[in-house]
Design a protein around this nucleic acid. Structure first.
Lengths: 206, 206, 206, 206
DNA sequence: AATGAATGAGCATTCATTCAT
DNA sequence: TATGAATGAATGCTCATTCAT
């Protein structure tokens, strides 16, 4: 019933709803699991009608995709920006690791979706890993590592792709364990511990 | 009436069917995903009637559990045996890594179930990780590492639990990537590459 | 937004479907029996989709309950109204008996549900008799009888509760026999024959 | 292994098992309801294997039939014997009523099967009432009543068939209420109370 | 854009019955 | 006779999606 609100909200109104659904879905998926979550639950949590969900997303599956895409896009974007200012490949990798765990540690629901719900089907996994943001993320780590190899910082004989997967796997396991643990501890500090070992392992002899 | 007949047939008759269902389920779950797999599919693949499945398993979910349990039990059992003969903690860890990837690399369907289907719900994940075989596996890695720490081989300041998770995560990622990759390559050799970096990273200075 | 439209349409639209399902279920239950009736049969007979049934009823069992409740509520309501105008307890009981058989005689399907389908489980029976409409119905007969006792019309030494059950049982058996009989005869006239004997049996000597 | 036991048991052994199943089924049906009772439950309660049940009965339904038939046959047989010694039709009917409630009151499980489980389907009801023991039972009451009419004891203008149904209905309701009641009271004494009213209602003026 | 009533395909599980031993 | 493992037909209910309003 307000009157003057329109100017700045016409478009945002649309996004508001889309984002509300995305936020609601993240929460619902995290709490109940993707397969046990009903579209109606998401709609209720987002404060919209069931049918409205389908004005913004083609299907329940697309919602899951969108959660992943939106989070990854932002993470990669923010990550690239942060890395620009850094030169040392070692420092860059340290920063990546910290950002990785910071983001997941900051939003437990999102973390659950990333670490658990997204993993439950080869279909999802293939779509997400073969191409797209995940490959881009892994590529970023790899490129940074190769940069270090060229600079003589990292051992040249190592397979950069494998190294990237290894680092990712280590961080990924930290996140997954954190989510599943009953004990509540800080996730971020583990980044440095992991990087200590990792960098020690891949660095060239002086 | 005979004597020599019982040993090799009486029990196996029962197990044959149970194992056939387990084998069939592994295949079906790997191909279609747990949630998309119908019990009827499993029964057909195992060559039994739908109802027969329920003579051996309480529910579809129990089948998944049993696949995990059976594979883990055997893996841990075989693993412990192999490790007995080895003294050097480094060598022990190398052997663990190789066994890890060998087992998964030898049965792609089982690997898919382990790397993907088992991961898709916090419920499963919690059941499998909090206690049970997974914790035991992680504990085995950790104990070996601590052995090395006590022997002065590995850096004493490192958190053994984190180290264990890190190694597991690295190997786990190798396996997952291998499954999802379109390219068919050998999984086992990656164990040595990972261990090279890992051991380099955790070893104490000489 | 006219005014006069709402009264006769807005609510009925909802009720139409609910009542169609109830009517269809009565028919289906009467023809096939409760346990042999499929929800799909009811849906088809009501001209709705299977799922629609569950928008109006929580379960198949609730449909049966609702048939009973709706019919009993209306019967008791109509009954009380008719009885208000009558003073003589004998006449009241005669009217009750006639109404009882009139209602059942007017809708054979409903009668089958009442006389047969509702009787097949202690669970149902207990729910329906212990409290609720049935107890209320029996109480109505009993109260009327006690009224006659106080008025000196009925024998004071008789146990009113037992008398009420006896009359109900007699009428109930007329209805059940009528339903099961291959011969088609009028049910209502039996009310007077029963009441002749009954009143003769319970009336005080003049 | 025994040797000398055979003479008197060869046949009884057969009947023992058949009767054990019948007894077990009565109990199981009474506790769980016919439709919720599994043949396996009956077998276990009878101490035989599932398949054995089918050596004595063609189907689950036949078991229910047999319970009814066996109990009715014995009741009618015993009833006829008792009535032989009585002359007065009033006394005969009193005896019938008492026997009716005595039998049901003596075996609650059997009573539940008779009053509830047997009533839940038109199919059962039709089979049991149209012909068979139930018709015979009703016919026995009716014949006794007609005997009294001829003797001038009972009112000649009454419809004997209706009178028989009425008496049966009254007794039947006593039994059903007794079963469903939480309060535990004696069923048999109600026979005399019912008969008091009934006989008063149908007797010819002196 | 938004609603929410309606749809109907889809599926784990049960259990009466059979039959090889 | 007796067993009990195996069978497979049968069904209530859910929920993603649609569409008339």
């Amino acid at each position: 019933m307000g009157t003057a609100r329109s100017l700045s909200t016409v478009r945002p109104v649309v996004n508001d709803k889309r984002e509300a659904i995305l936020r609601a879905a993240t929460q619902v998926f995290a709490r109940n699991g993707y397969f046990n979550s009903k579209v109606a639950d998401i709609a209720r949590a987002a404060g919209v009608a069931d049918g409205t969900v389908y004005l913004y997303f083609k299907s329940k599956e697309e919602i899951l995709h969108s959660i992943f895409d939106a989070a990854m896009e932002e993470a990669i974007h923010a990550g690239r920006k942060e890395l620009e200012a850094i030169d040392d490949p070692r420092e860059k990798l340290r920063r990546i690791a910290r950002l990785h765990l910071e983001r997941l540690g900051a939003d437990r629901d999102l973390a659950v979706v990333f670490q658990v719900e997204l993993r439950g089907s080869t279909k999802f996994m293939e779509e997400f890993s073969a191409a797209g943001f995940f490959a881009e993320y892994l590529g970023m780590i790899r490129a940074t590592f190769e940069e270090g190899q060229r600079a003589g910082i990292f051992r040249r004989e190592l397979n950069a792709k494998l190294v990237a997967k290894m680092l990712f796997g280590a961080l990924d396991e930290m996140a997954t364990n954190w989510i599943l643990s009953r004990r509540r501890y800080k996730l971020v500090p583990m980044a440095d511990e992991v990087m200590d070992i990792f960098l020690n392992g891949v660095s060239a002899a002086i």
